[in-house]
């Protein structure tokens, strides 16, 4: 399991020694976490993973390797069967962004973004400044009275992100949030997410299928393999944040993409994993 790591690290170091990357304090730590579902599927085996404050961490891997399961464990929506999850920091508010926008269709954008605050007991009037700020952060100012069905796919996703940001969470969990969007919208939202992350200095755990997306967005990429789901490699992306379109043209970007895909393919070849291969 440890074998692929040195190669990945070597590349990260070759790209130039740490312009940023001060040793960051851990926000959450998964220690030897295993998850076996009631139907006997072993979704995760012995996962060690540290999430550090302020980093953008991507979980990359083929379908079924347990990426969503890790997010659900972090969100407290499921409990690990083995191992444990530590939260060294006392406060750990969470925001969750699903693959689909998952808005309440009967409520307008304002009420949808208000929901987490409302569940914390804030009245509409008390919550208003925060909701409006969150909407401004995702570029949806002025749409507070629109109903979800009146929004485009990208706008719905923005509203969903605004809802996750409403409580100013210490940790933002995103499960393939842009997978259902077209390439152009996805790139735009990627850029906005990078900018937002820097502005808020948030910690993000981002699940994706896309090597390119993960390299563009992340400080660190954790590559996973399926059956059972496990962490097989880690790639550091030392380029400074925020990044912009120019980053996609740099040799460093191309090299990191190549290295990440190689790690991904190695991960899938490492075991006799039949069936699906998450290409690209």
């Amino acid at each position: 399991m440890a074998a692929p790591l040195p190669a990945a690290r070597a590349v990260a170091n070759a790209t130039g020694d740490a312009p940023s990357a001060p040793a960051r304090e851990p926000l959450a730590r998964l220690a030897q976490v295993g998850k076996t579902f009631q139907n006997g599927v072993e979704a995760l085996r012995a996962v060690d993973l540290e999430i550090r404050r302020g980093e953008f961490l991507s979980l990359l891997g083929p379908s079924g390797c347990g990426k969503s399961t890790i997010l659900r464990l972090l969100a407290g929506l499921a409990n690990p069967s083995l191992g444990r999850i530590d939260w060294p920091a006392t406060e750990h508010d969470l925001g969750f962004v699903f693959q689909e926008p998952t808005l309440m269709p009967w409520a307008n954008v304002f009420d949808n973004v208000w929901l987490p605050l409302r569940l914390q007991g804030q009245s509409r009037a008390t919550a208003r400044p925060r909701v409006e700020e969150a909407l401004a952060q995702v570029g949806l100012s002025g749409f507070d009275r629109a109903y979800p069905r009146e929004l485009s796919g990208g706008m719905k996703m923005r509203a969903s992100i605004a809802r996750a940001l409403a409580t100013r969470p210490a940790l933002l969990l995103m499960d393939e949030p842009f997978a259902a969007l077209d390439e152009i919208t996805r790139m735009k939202l990627n850029d906005d997410l990078v900018a937002l992350k820097c502005e808020l200095n948030a910690t993000v755990v981002f699940v994706t299928h896309s090597v390119f997306e993960s390299v563009y967005l992340s400080d660190r990429i954790v590559v996973m393999a399926p059956r059972p789901g496990r962490v097989v490699a880690e790639v550091a992306v030392p380029a400074p944040q925020p990044r912009n379109e120019d980053f996609r043209l740099r040799a460093e970007y191309a090299e990191l993409c190549r290295e990440t895909s190689r790690a991904l393919h190695r991960a899938m070849g490492a075991e006799p994993a039949g069936g699906e291969t998450g290409s690209q």
């Binding site: 969100a75 407290g76 699903f98 929901l115 569940l119």
Partner: peptide, 21 residues
Amino acid sequence: DHNLLDLFQMYRASSWRQLLW
């Protein structure tokens, strides 16, 4: 929608609020 139920659970909504909202 199961994701919405998860969201309510994550924000520790009471079952009464889950019913109402």
